[in-house]
Design a protein around this nucleic acid. Structure first.
Lengths: 141, 141
DNA sequence: AGATAAAAAGAGTTTTATATCTTATTTAAA
DNA sequence: TTTAAATAAGATATAAAACTCTTTTTATCT
């Protein structure tokens, strides 16, 4: 479903949502330790997310990555779009180039159903809401 | 979701379900032309499926690949298991090694929902049924 | 100003997935 | 028994994804 890069990206964003704010930043090393993700690889992903304004960063001493309010009001869907591209949820599940409701493949209907439930939470709930749930229910990231 | 190999495998099985029988076999070349899948690559996949008794083949003149009745009564889920392994539908969507209902990741519930709809058709409907639907509704493979 | 600590950027490597090519083997019809 | 049509197997090539390393830039602290 999601590339490893994207999985890492989602988890990193959630981690930042739970642990950081405008005045509580974290360095790549800390995040990478907390999530058990290769450090340099994670750095790339965080840079990418920062470019897309889905995370924030500041350079220099006491710098680090964090989510500001705007970032926390964004959605995981945007994170996914930024990393895996905007058609993860529309590409044909059987890889057919021209698959649509008009001209469906044999699993098209089921793929639609399958995706709608997932899409809903990914775009309706903002990151802060998910972070809150993680915090309350002690869900792991 | 599915690897390309698996997508090819599913499509090949459905193609065989629609176009072949015990006494109407097709060679790799014809199938590969019909589905626009690289010939040699498809050959490997068909061999793999034949080994798993999900397709049938006969060598020599007038040989080829086909589905016998037993094959047609099998399910796409078995095809998927044979190619992508048996935990495509249970692996954590965020890649966490120890994700379960007891100890879920932040998207666990949605992943479950998402997958159940798809799983249902993949294991409940047999291949022949899907082939019939393809035939009747002129769905492409 | 200079040392330091952090992200950003770029280049490079490794691994895995996908695809191709070549040769051998099997089978059955002619 | 020759031959054509197919599968089977193994080696190799290519491309994409995952991961690493090094250098540069920037901000802060002393």
């Amino acid at each position: 479903m999601f590339s490893k890069t994207c999985q890492y990206g989602i988890r990193a964003i959630l981690y930042l949502a739970v642990h950081t704010s405008e005045d509580k930043k974290l360095g790549v090393e800390q995040i990478s330790n907390g999530l058990d993700i290769p450090k340099h690889f994670l750095a790339k992903i965080l840079q990418q997310l920062t470019k897309h304004h889905l995370a924030s960063s500041s350079k220099g001493r006491n710098g680090g990555f964090y989510l500001n309010t705007e970032n926390k009001n964004s959605s995981l869907l945007k994170v996914i779009h930024a990393i895996d591209g905007s058609d993860v949820f529309s590409l044909c599940i059987l890889g057919l180039p021209e698959c649509s409701s008009q001209n469906p493949c044999s699993l098209h209907q089921e793929a639609l159903k399958q995706r709608s439930a997932m899409l809903k939470i990914l775009e309706d709930q903002d990151i802060q809401q998910i972070a809150k749930r993680i915090d309350l229910k002690h869900i792991k990231i």
